[in-house]
Design a protein around this nucleic acid. Structure first.
Length: 214
DNA sequence: CTCTGGATTGAC
DNA sequence: TCAATCCAGAGG
């Protein structure tokens, strides 16, 4: 474990409830640079969030667009819980639930830079290189050991939570269309730290591009 | 009840 | 480029 990023050595400040009670796009971009942590027994692993996507009930790309179902139920809870779903029949993906109760919204956590418990994450990820450990939403959950068991977990609890790292600086933010969807494809609700090597997706969605003539 | 396709990944 | 893998959601 890297002592510099060890939350016990340099304690960060846990995000408070009110952090989650804001517009989902605001929360999605404000999560960049924050520390995601996951305890499994005695071990903790996690890292700095570098890529997110926002979804809400008015958005045809969202799991909760058509209303409450068994799978998306927790998206309608008060902000500050974890929404976990199975992707393509084989991967887990995790979201931070946002907003007031009965309003469906969540932020998909798409990538972290691993900083805490790196060796543990590497073991979970078959010894892959650091850059590949948690670059992509399925990989992120695989690295941290997050599964459906974490569905609905309270981010104020001791299993999965978020902190503002002691070293936090508000990063630059690049907004782009979201990845892998077939509806709402133009809506620029994906947020990442531009040029950051631990961000997923094609290069054109990771780079700060000069705006063309309008 | 059956059928379809997906907020992905990794191998070829 | 494409298969893996499976269940939520939609439709009959």
């Amino acid at each position: 474990m890297n002592a510099f990023h060890d939350p016990r050595a340099r304690p960060g400040k846990r995000l408070e409830r009110r952090f989650y009670l804001r517009p989902v796009q605001t929360v999605a971009r404000d999560l960049l640079g924050r520390l995601l942590l996951c305890r499994r027994g005695e071990t903790v692993s996690g890292g700095i969030i570098v890529e997110t996507e926002a979804y809400d009930e008015h958005d045809p790309a969202s799991h909760c667009f058509a209303g409450v179902t068994e799978r998306n139920r927790v998206m309608f809870a008060e902000g500050g819980a974890l929404y976990v779903y199975r992707s393509y029949g084989m991967h887990w993906c995790c979201n931070v639930v946002v907003g007031r109760e009965n309003y469906g919204a969540a932020v998909l956590l798409r990538a972290i830079e691993p900083t805490v418990g790196v060796e543990l994450m590497q073991r979970r990820r078959r010894g892959l290189p650091l850059r590949d450990l948690a670059r992509g939403p399925g990989r992120l959950c695989a690295a941290l050991g997050i599964t459906l068991d974490d569905y609905g977990a309270d981010l104020g609890g001791q299993s999965v939570w978020l902190e503002t790292p002691a070293t936090f600086r508000r990063p630059k933010v690049l907004a782009t269309p979201r990845i892998g969807i077939t509806k709402g494809v133009e809506t620029p609700w994906r947020f990442c730290i531009p040029e950051h090597p631990f961000v997923s997706g094609p290069r054109r969605l990771r780079t700060s591009v000069a705006l063309g003539p309008s």
